[in-house]
């Protein structure tokens, strides 16, 4: 654990024989119960444990290792509602052999799940603050649980803003959810794309250009950022420039995670293991290493 109000907490799965979180190194079998195509190469999968008497638990920001038997294992952020204890949602882009195999799994098929692993977005500690969630591309998946969580207790937070950038209008994840969030009077949603045809009547440009559109008090705001590292670097620079504290900017990092528990060392970044100490970090803790190559 890393103490302090604005530190994220490292949450290792509890060794509890009554829960699936016991599965630290051995994948537990889960069944695909729903699959939905998000973009041409990205799918959302809903999975439930074969043993349905055991509750499924995770906290926003955590990830699981998904294993396709005989193919391989990859870390995938949990993108669903943390209040649900009967299934898990994942959003997966088909970019390699294992992720392609996951995306090809049909309803009723089995996937192995280890975890949940890693630190969490500090949303409990952010109560009373304005909340700004900034996501780029597939980065909306790891921050979506924040929205489920905070919107369930909306009055506990100040203003809420979601700023989301994607490649083009066809590449937005969760379009129905986005529509629902945009329809709320207690939430500010701004989206942008890198390019579009002229039928698109909203913003075109980089996601940082949405920051001035959001209504928040930089001194009393927690910002949660997830997306490609270059996008997070530009975003962090702009946030610091308007006075958001580096203690209150949280980023989710991605590295080559293998074991999920900080044993194998594949995901080491400076002194941190992304799988165990992260993936969610306050900027203040990782700024020295953030954006640097070969660390």
């Amino acid at each position: 654990m890393h103490g302090g109000r604005w530190q994220t907490s490292t949450v290792l799965p509890r060794v509890d024989k009554t829960e699936h979180s016991q599965a630290v190194m051995t994948p537990a079998p889960y069944r695909i119960i729903r699959r939905r195509r998000e973009t041409p190469d990205t799918w959302s999968l809903r999975v439930e444990p074969y043993d349905r008497t055991v509750p499924v638990r995770f906290r926003p920001g955590q990830f699981s290792m998904l294993y396709v038997f005989g193919v391989g294992e990859v870390p995938i952020s949990i993108s669903g509602d943390p209040a649900r204890n009967d299934y898990l949602d994942f959003t997966v882009r088909s970019v390699g052999m294992t992720t392609a195999a996951i995306c090809n799994l049909r309803n009723g098929k089995t996937v192995g799940v280890r975890g949940p692993f890693g630190s969490t977005w500090p949303i409990e500690e952010s109560k009373g603050e304005d909340i700004v969630v900034i996501a780029g591309g597939l980065g909306l998946a790891p921050v979506r649980p924040i929205l489920f969580y905070t919107l369930a207790d909306r009055s506990d937070y100040g203003s809420m803003s979601l700023l989301y950038g994607a490649r083009n209008p066809e590449d937005f994840l969760y379009p129905k959810a986005l529509e629902g969030w945009r329809g709320r009077f207690d939430m500010d949603v701004h989206v942008t794309v890198d390019h579009a045809d002229r039928n698109w009547r909203s913003n075109v440009g980089v996601v940082t250009r949405l920051i001035p559109m959001a209504n928040f008090d930089p001194e009393h705001t927690s910002v949660f950022v997830c997306g490609p590292e270059i996008m997070m670097r530009f975003t962090v620079d702009d946030l610091l420039g308007i006075g958001v504290s580096e203690e209150k900017i949280f980023i989710s990092l991605e590295r080559n995670m293998r074991c999920g528990v900080g044993l194998c060392g594949h995901c080491q970044m400076g002194p941190e293991f992304i799988c165990k100490d992260g993936p969610v970090f306050p900027l203040s803790r990782v700024k020295r290493w953030f954006g640097k190559r070969e660390v």
Binding site: D41, R93, V95, G136, G137, L138, G165, A166, R167, D171, D194, H195, G205, V206, T208, R209, G227, P228, I230, M231, F234
Partner: peptide, 17 residues
């Protein structure tokens, strides 16, 4: 220009293989 370069980099696209 910085923003244009960032947009041109297609950072939300699939990673280069």
């Amino acid at each position: 220009l910085y923003n244009a370069w960032w947009q041109m980099a297609d950072i939300y696209g699939p990673p280069a293989r």
